Simulated assay, not measured.
Amino acid sequence: MLAVRPPAVAGMFYPAEPGELSHEILEFLTEAQPRTLIPKALIVPHAGYVYSGAIAASAYATLKSISARIRRVVLLGPTHRVAVRGLALPDVEAFDTPLGRVMLDTELMRIISSLPQVTVSAAAHAQEHSLEVQLPFLQSVLNDFTLLPLAVGMATAEEVAEVLELAWGGEETLIVISSDLSHYLPYAAAQSVDGRTIRNILELKQPIAHEEACGGTPISGLIIVARKHQLKPHLLDLRNSGDTAGSKNNVVGYTSIAFSAGE
């Protein structure tokens, strides 16, 4: 019998009803500014769709022209509920969302599990939203793909980079890093902090600290491999919850960045 992780935050972070979810994502994607990019990697936010869905859509919309060739998504996000040493794989063969089932790349999981920093943790994945909220977007823009999901805990940027390098593949493989930016600062302070963080990412400078981005470790690992593969980052969107659906007193920052082969 197939081992499957059921959705944990459907109805909270995004709609649980398939028709409503599809419609909401289509609206986000339709409103996204068109960009002529061929991304190898994306950084996207992972808050509730009312807060960060439009920002995430600006990244996923860049996949339109290459969606047919992407067959594998390597998805990394920070752990929010369970402490993990290293990078944790789930103990299942598929993830379910209201839009259907996503099969995991069990062969690639087997390959990267040979690395000492890669563990298996059902608990790390059971309630983790940073990975789950990306799946309906991926299901909406891609055709048929497998998933390599990794919950990143206490790890170094170099350990993340080693995993990314092993999973890098060719044009069939997309890397997605799930991360929000600063948390619960006043609006103007968040703009200043997030602006500095974005400048560092665009200049491929790491480390990115956890206070700057909750996915700072996976972002830092991506920066290492982006330098090696001569990828160029492109800022697609930078806003915060005060711009989208929240108060300006305590905001959370969001960005979408695409990494493509350098011109």
Results as ranks from 00 to 15, higher is better:
Arg35Trp: 13
Pro78Glu: 02
Ala155Gln: 11
His229Thr: 01
Lys232Phe: 08
Ala16Asn: 09
His229Gly: 01
Asp194Cys: 02
Glu172Asn: 08
Ser52Glu: 10
Leu75Ile: 07
Ala57Thr: 05
Glu93Pro: 03
Asn143Thr: 10
Thr106Lys: 12
Ile177Ala: 01
Ile198Glu: 02
Arg110Leu: 10
Leu21Trp: 12
Gly86Ser: 07
Arg69Pro: 06
Asp180Tyr: 12
Gly246Gln: 10
Thr244Asn: 05
Asp96Ala: 11
Asp237Lys: 10
Phe13Ile: 07
His80Glu: 00
Tyr14Arg: 03
Gly169Ser: 06
Val92Gln: 02
Ile43Leu: 13
Ser67Asn: 13
Arg239Lys: 12
Met109Glu: 02
His210Glu: 05
Ser220Gln: 01
Thr36Gly: 02
Asp144Asn: 09
Asn240Arg: 05
Ser192Cys: 00
Ile70Asn: 04
Leu87Arg: 08
Gln230Asn: 12
Gly216Trp: 13
Pro6Arg: 10
Ser192Gly: 00
Gly246Tyr: 15
Val92His: 03
Glu171Val: 15
Tyr60Trp: 06
Gly246Asp: 10
Ala188Gly: 03
Glu203Lys: 11
Thr36Tyr: 11
Ala61His: 12
Ser52Val: 11
Ile177Glu: 00
Val9Trp: 07
Ser140Asn: 11
Ala157Trp: 12
Ala54Trp: 07
Glu211Tyr: 15
Ser67Tyr: 13
Ala188Lys: 07
Ile257Asp: 03
Ala88Cys: 06
His23Asn: 05
Ser140Leu: 14
Gln191Ile: 05
Leu135Gly: 03
Val44Trp: 05
Leu75Lys: 04
Val251Leu: 14
Val133Tyr: 00
Thr217Lys: 08
Gly53Asn: 06
Ile198Gln: 02
Ser182Asp: 02
Ile111Gly: 01
Glu132Asp: 12
Ile111Ser: 04
Ala124Arg: 12
Met1Ile: 09
Ser113Met: 14
Asp91Cys: 13
Leu135Asn: 02
Gly216Lys: 13
Ser260Phe: 11
Gly216Gln: 09
Ala261Asn: 03
Val193Asn: 01
Ala209Cys: 08
Gln206Asn: 07
Arg101Ser: 03
Ala47Leu: 15
Ala16Leu: 11
Val160Lys: 06
Gly53Glu: 04
Arg71Asp: 01
Leu138Cys: 10
Thr217Glu: 04
Pro90Phe: 06
Asp194Trp: 11
Thr244Lys: 12
Leu115Trp: 12
Ser140Phe: 14
Leu108Thr: 04
His229Lys: 09
Leu166Tyr: 14
Ser22Glu: 07
Leu181Phe: 15
Ala88Asn: 05
Val74Gln: 10
Glu27Asn: 15
Ile208Asp: 00
Gly221Lys: 12
Val84Trp: 09
Tyr254Leu: 04
Val193Met: 11
Pro7Arg: 07
Arg72Trp: 03
Pro18Gly: 14
Ala151Met: 10
Met12Trp: 14
Asp91Leu: 11
Glu162Leu: 13
Leu150Gln: 07
Ser22Trp: 15
Ile55Ala: 06
Tyr254Thr: 01
Ala57Trp: 13
Ala54Phe: 08
Tyr60Leu: 01
Ala61Phe: 13
Leu131Phe: 08
Leu75Gly: 03
Asn143Ala: 07
Leu202Asp: 03
Leu164Gln: 09
Glu24Cys: 11
Asp91Asn: 12
Leu202Phe: 15
Thr30Leu: 15
Leu135Cys: 06
Pro78Ala: 05
Arg5Gln: 00
Arg101Tyr: 04
Val133Cys: 00
